[in-house]
Nucleic acid binder design. Structure first.
Lengths: 148, 148
DNA sequence: TGAAAAAAGATCGCGCGCGATGTAATCGAT
DNA sequence: ATCGATTACATCGCGCGCGATCTTTTTTCA
């Protein structure tokens, strides 16, 4: 009765397979953050802060909620992040007089000015990734499929 | 000289484009973690802990360094994570007598037993993702391209 | 109109990721 | 054999993500 190939002895293919997709996504996201870091350090931004600034550079006064919808993050993540951006002088936060529950976040002059420097980032990233553009775009499209 | 369309007025297409890929990756990774959470809660694991267990279920005694290579994480992340797994009774950690610098991590009986429950996770995930299998595999392959 | 429900943020706690640094063990070249 | 370099983990600090909970304001509707 010894040496029977119980489930505990197999590699368990289902676990290995699943492994691949979540692994790949997890690893790719971590690596992306690491790739961005040196460039963003030069701007004084973290990766999530950069993403928030991207949203604000497209449309400047926005509520915390709207930013959260765009970034798929909730206030427990955004509020501290925005406070740090405010402490760095990049954004301004104040309650909406129309509805005191809302907080409106807008770019400061410094925040707007930072965009000029940020424009160099995408090209540097594409260069650092060293992957054909069409490959990157195909990947992006497939990732959107997961975007519940 | 007013109303000249300076860079500060354009949407800045390069920023928008870049936006898409890093956004997509960032969002997909976050959503994946959220999707796994309820299933992993039932196992008493976090998502990174689950990934570490996947590696250990494939090969049990391993050094911290080998786990780090597999997960692309360093000891500053892994050591605390492994200590938590140890506190939960899922793994055992001890110095390698052959080389006292190394720490060997192995599954406990409880850790090995957990694999039986974990085997249900991949199928649940595929179901929860509600995306064709070939789509998921294509995505996985493309993500590997980014794997430095 | 007045009380309950809903909405919008803020706060708290925990577990990552990771850069920077520290410590102990091993290796290497003299 | 010794001493400097390297290796393998550990520790620390900070900034997320997010579930849970709280506060304040607005909305709903009986």
């Amino acid at each position: 009765m010894s040496k029977k190939p119980t489930p505990s002895d197999r590699p368990v293919e289902s676990l290995r397979l699943d492994n691949q997709l979540c692994f790949a996504l997890y690893g790719a996201a971590n690596r992306m953050t690491r790739l961005y870091r040196p460039m963003l350090d030069a701007l004084g931004l973290t990766y999530p802060q950069y993403l928030a600034m991207l949203v604000l550079w497209e449309k400047s006064p926005q509520t915390v909620g709207a930013l959260g919808d765009a970034l798929d993050l909730d206030s427990s993540t955004l509020t501290p992040l925005l406070k740090r951006l405010e402490a760095g002088g990049l954004v301004e936060r104040h309650r909406d007089p129309e509805d005191e529950r809302r907080v409106i976040v807008g770019l400061s002059d410094k925040g707007r000015a930072l965009r000029d420097q940020a424009e160099a980032v995408p090209e540097q990233m594409i260069c650092a990734l060293d992957t054909p553009m069409n490959e990157l775009m195909a990947l992006r499209e497939r990732l959107k499929i997961l975007a519940k």
